[in-house]
Structure formats: structure tokens, C-alpha cells
Design a protein around this nucleic acid. Sequence first.
DNA 1: GAGTGGTCTAGACCACACA
DNA 2: GTGTGGTCTAGACCACTCT
Lengths: 227, 227
Amino acid sequence: MTWQAVQAKVQRRISERVWEPGALIPGEKDLAEEFGCARATVNRALRQLAEAGLLERRRKGGTRVTRHPVRKATLDISITRHEVEQRGKAYSFNTLSKRLAAPPKAISAAMKLPPGEKHLHIKTLHKADGRPFMFEDRWINTLTVPHLLDADLSQVNANEWLVENALFTHGSISFSAAGATKYQAQQLAIEPEDAVFIIQRSTWQSDHSITLVKLAYTQDFKMRTQI
Amino acid sequence: MTWQAVQAKVQRRISERVWEPGALIPGEKDLAEEFGCARATVNRALRQLAEAGLLERRRKGGTRVTRHPVRKATLDISITRHEVEQRGKAYSFNTLSKRLAAPPKAISAAMKLPPGEKHLHIKTLHKADGRPFMFEDRWINTLTVPHLLDADLSQVNANEWLVENALFTHGSISFSAAGATKYQAQQLAIEPEDAVFIIQRSTWQSDHSITLVKLAYTQDFKMRTQI
DNA sequence: GAGTGGTCTAGACCACACA
DNA sequence: GTGTGGTCTAGACCACTCT
């Protein structure tokens, strides 16, 4: 009996309501005995179901079927070039502007930057088969990533350079919809106020921010995943 | 040495480039020896890093540091009431319409419905502190979920009823931006063509579709997570 | 064929949360 | 205290894949 088999059996019992939502299920030892396998095998199966939100486990309290399962959707965050190529299109990009500047307050606060320093501000248009695909507005912390100033960003864009050269330890990401600004609209070849899909991401190396980036996708962009 | 400690050490070596992107790292046996723990402990640590996209593992081929890590963002898919309450607001909803109807082709194709049957079509406005929060347009397969027709949906909305009474085995979800339709705009108290955040979700019980739902959120809605 | 990761086992001890 | 899940161990066998 593999852990996948145990997991499948347990999942069946949940979906067929043999074990009702909120109910306590047998302990690992009992299940191991029933399925004829080691407790570690049951543990792995149940642990993963708990991570998926279907079970709630507590030491001493036992394992319960979640009443209102909070299912998890996992999105792949890959570099833009791969996103485009996965759609079977040719990737290219234009660096629209790239300069050192003092970031506005909202940016420096979000990146926890000390005041007075100048940081790198890059605007890039990413294209699929030569047509506008996504507009990127990025600030990069020059204190955390000083080497970037020496890098050649004509062949490799900032996104890819950072992914290879400044691995982040953690970050946050948000998804939303907004009306396109005039500049975004002009670059993406749409009308101002047309809906765009916004991804905002900030990444960190322990306590130091690396970059804060806002991506604007045209309306036909969909982010998909399985649950 | 716990698996978390092993994982932390490995992660450090990756972020400090002791092991470069693309490089082969020592085998599990060697690492177990170095860290003074069992191979299973190393295995668990590395397996999880591989799931996170930082490592690539192959039998016989060994373990490599991923060159272009595809990081995973995990979004919690909870019921709308919880979403609203987590924002510290009072939840309420209006059922705008609820009737049996023959679904349009796009819907019946996506839900793999045999032609000719009527299914339940529900439109709901979800509110936070009495103000429009999200507009929901849902089709429910009456063949898979016949009991729903008897349910009282005045107290509990369709979403919550389904979560409790028709656990899904799998599904797909997509996120995008769009201009609001006239009807959506009217219900959400915004202007037509204003940007709305769209979540489209379909859920299944093995081969049978349960429901297909399109959620339209107003512009101030952001979906956040950590990576 | 051989080397790597993937998994299972049986037993043990620990950590937490409840009485 | 006591019972549950969380984890570690040492050893074993299997599955994949590269040569």
C-alpha cells in the first residue's frame, strides 16, 4: 500500500461522506493497521491532504474533515519569456526607459528604502510575436543589487537577470484589475481606461528588498491553474 | 538535525551560490553523512525544495539547482462570506435570479453537459457592509447535484451549499481582467466598461461537472499572497 | 548494468494540547 | 498524565534513467 493509495482511499471516504465534514477520523495507528501499512505511510498521505486544506490535524486532538475547505490554487510564477514561449509565440522586449531616480514615497515605503538614495527605475514592454503582451514598471534596490549597474541589459532583461543573479528568499504578490493609464495604453496599443490585469510583486533577500514590479497585461490574458 | 534545518542549510547554499544555478549538488547519501542524519531526512528537505521549484531531481541524474526557478504562489480559495468577513465587514447577499434554463453552448461545452437538459442558473450579488462586493453568475449541473433543487437557498447561498454538499475532486480556475458588462456594472454600482477582476472556476466530481461560476469583483479588490 | 532518488517499514522519541 | 500527530532512524527494495 503506497501513500498515494492511502491518500486516494481517504479522499474517497471524504467525498462519499463516509467521514462527514467536521467528523473525527480514526488515528494514524488505526488507519495503518486497517490499510496494512506503516504509520509513516499514513502520515504522509494525511499530511498532504491537510496541506491541501481537506483535513485539519491537531496533536492530541486528532484529525478532522474540514467543514469549509479552503482549497489552494497554485500559480506558477515564471519569467515572461517562458510565459510567451509557452503560448507558442516568439518573445522580444523593448526597454522603454532605464534611469536612476529617487523613488516616490509609496515605492520607498513598500521597499523599506532609506530616504535620499537613487534607485534603478526600468520600464519594459514585453512582446509576443512582435505584438504588445505586457508592460512592466520596475524599481530595483541598488543597495541590495549593486552589480546590476554593471550588467548588460540589452540581451537579457531585468527580470531574467535578477532571477539568475539575485535569488530572493521571500516576497509578496497581488493580482487585481485596473483601468489602463495613458502611458500603459499607449504602449500596449489599447485605449486608456481599458481593463488591464495587474500583477504586483515585491521580492526580498532576508530583510533587504530586491525589486518591486508592476505588470500590466492586456485583456485577453488569463492566468490559469488546476485545483 | 531536523528536516527543516537541513532545508535551511541547503537553501542558504543556493542563495549564497555555494551551489550555482544549474550545478549538480551532492547525493542524498553524502548530504545525510555530512549533516549527520538519516537519508530520509535529507530526502524530505530536498523533496520540498523541488516542489517549490528551487531544485530539479532525477533518478540516476541527481539533484540540480534550477536555473530559472518557477516559483509557486499559493492562493486560498475560500467561500465569499469568509473573504468579506476577513476584511472586517458584514456579509450579506441578494439572489438576483434563479431559474432552470437551457445553458448556452459555451457553457454546456465547458461543463460537458448533454444537450437538451435544463440546468440551474443563479445570479447573486455579494455585499460587504451592505455595499456591492462581487457579482456571481453560476450554472449548476442538476444531473450531478439533484438535491440542490430541494435546498433552501435563502439563508445559505449556492456557493456555501455546494461546498458543504457537493465536494469536488478537481477543477480549474482562471483569473483575468475585463470591462464590466452593463448588467454587472448596474449591480456593482460602477460604470459599464469599468475594469473588473474576473475569476472563473469550474469544479468536477470525477467526470461529472458540478458547477461553472464567473465572479466579477470591483476594481478595489486585490488577491494577495506570499511567495 | 549501475547509480540515483522514491518509497516503505518498524520502532522510537518528542511536542503539543487536552484532561 | 495521556494520547495524538510530528519527526527521526537504519535498513531495505524499487523505479527510473543514463551509459
